[in-house]
């Protein structure tokens, strides 16, 4: 049970923690206060419990695909929020103090949403063993190990981002935000396919031999870029499209700023 527990928790923690470390590095870059971060942790935790408690009801909604719809909605929402964050980050880098409060609010919202989504799964998973004492120690230790690995990776990643020179931090933050955001919209498209709202197709390729989704490295790549060993053509289009749109917006903003 321990390995399973590690995998379940690690996957969810990594997704949120990597997003957090990029956003925190951006906060650091703009010399903002990290107060939003603590509020987001608190709010996200509360919402995760509420969402987890009501997951049964949500699942039954919309003809049994409520879970997919809500999760896809959250993912798309986060995608849009991350675009706004990237744009505001760029603008603030060049022209100080432009809608900084809005930016902090957007980051707070994105992190809260991400924690709510991933946290609810951990909550559902862990509480399901609450009534099964023989497995509980194993599950809890696994959860701690998973959370620890996820936390360590993103803490080191955060310090790596902060340790770079500021120009690189900006560029790499923007790139990572783009990849994370594209991963979000990829997940959304997968969920919508699962709910039969987007057409299902045969996979375009199978890279599971190269990198298994079920390995720690696979989970890491999944958390960073939404790695999918057997994507369908539509998923590939959505993923590439999301990246192109976001990079286009970033490039457009950058062009406009540097022209002014």
């Amino acid at each position: 049970m321990l390995l399973t527990s590690v995998m379940v928790v690690l996957r969810e923690v990594l997704e949120v923690a990597l997003l957090l470390s990029v956003l925190l590095a951006a906060t650091r870059l703009l010399e903002l206060r990290a107060r939003w971060f603590y509020i987001a942790l608190l709010l996200g935790g509360c919402f995760a419990v509420i969402y987890g408690e009501n997951l049964a009801k949500i699942s039954q909604a919309f003809g049994g695909v409520g879970q997919e719809l809500v999760n896809a909605g959250i993912s798309i929402f986060i995608y849009i929020l991350l675009i706004v964050v990237a744009v505001l980050l760029l603008v603030n880098w060049h022209k100080k103090h432009y809608k900084l409060l809005t930016m902090q609010f957007v980051m707070l919202l994105a992190v809260t949403m991400a924690i709510m989504r991933e946290g609810s799964e951990i909550y559902v998973y862990l509480t399901s063993f609450w009534l099964h004492p023989p497995l509980l120690p194993s599950v809890m230790i696994g959860a701690l190990l998973g959370a620890g690995i996820g936390y360590s990776l993103s803490a080191l990643f955060y310090y790596l981002l902060c340790g770079l020179s500021q120009r690189y931090t900006l560029g790499i933050s923007c790139i990572f935000l783009t990849i994370l955001a594209a991963g979000m919209s990829l997940q959304a498209s997968q969920l919508l396919i699962q709910a039969d709202l987007l057409p299902a197709q045969e996979p375009l390729w199978d890279s599971s031999r190269l990198l298994e989704e079920n390995s720690i490295a696979g989970q890491l790549f999944y958390a960073i870029s939404g790695y999918e060993a057997t994507p369908t053509p539509l998923e590939v289009v959505v993923y590439v499209g999301s990246i192109v749109i976001m990079l286009g917006i970033i490039a457009g903003v950058y062009y406009r700023i540097s022209r002014d």
Partner: peptide, 25 residues
């Protein structure tokens, strides 16, 4: 207790709460 249906080859993943049903295409 809840269960999560998951398949890497099918790319499907869904939490199914205890004593309930879920639809997956």
């Amino acid at each position: 207790s809840p269960e999560e249906f998951e398949s890497y080859l099918l790319n499907r993943k869904k939490v199914i709460m205890g004593n309930s049903k879920a639809v997956i295409f």
